[in-house]
Amino acid sequence: MRIILILFFTTVSLNVTGQKYNLDVSLVSFYSYSVIEDISAENSESLGLIDLSTNRVAFIVPIIKFKFKKKLMQEHFNEKYMESELYPQATFQGTMVGFDSDALGKQDVSASGKLTIHGISQDVSLTGGIQNISDQIVNLSSEFKVKLEDYEIEIPQLLWQNIAEEIEVKVEFTFKLVK
């Protein structure tokens, strides 16, 4: 019986290591172009996992960690648009298509899955590039557009001209093999 137990635990620990890569360095940024002023923010405190045995990828972006040049804008972003106290994070979980984990060099991939922002989940397909830097490190980058309406992010009427209805999001992730 004990041998069976030990066998189980060994299998469990094998599962944990496997082909999983943890997000090590991250940069999520967005831009919104408008007549009055361009709005941009950066976030380097995301969490992420990528599993090359199943080609699945997931990440969490803590909304409150977006840094703006204007702090008042940052406060309004959290308080009025994203309602960060209610919806503290944006998440994505999906499966990558078109990635050959043995090939070197940059490859174009798409990942289809669920993007959740402001508590609203949408099925999306994100496109980007992935690169095996070494057998330990994988780079992933993507640029995509988020339509505020799709995620029920309301813009107060008095401000409509200040904020674009579509936001350009840029993601740059470096994953490291989980040992």
């Binding site: 469990v12 599962n15 496997g18 990528i50 199943t54 699945r56 990828v57 997931a58």
Partner: peptide, 12 residues
């Protein structure tokens, strides 16, 4: 753990 492997997000 097996089901958790499928759900990377909850693992995160």
């Amino acid at each position: 753990d097996v089901s958790g492997q499928d759900d990377l997000l909850s693992e995160l």
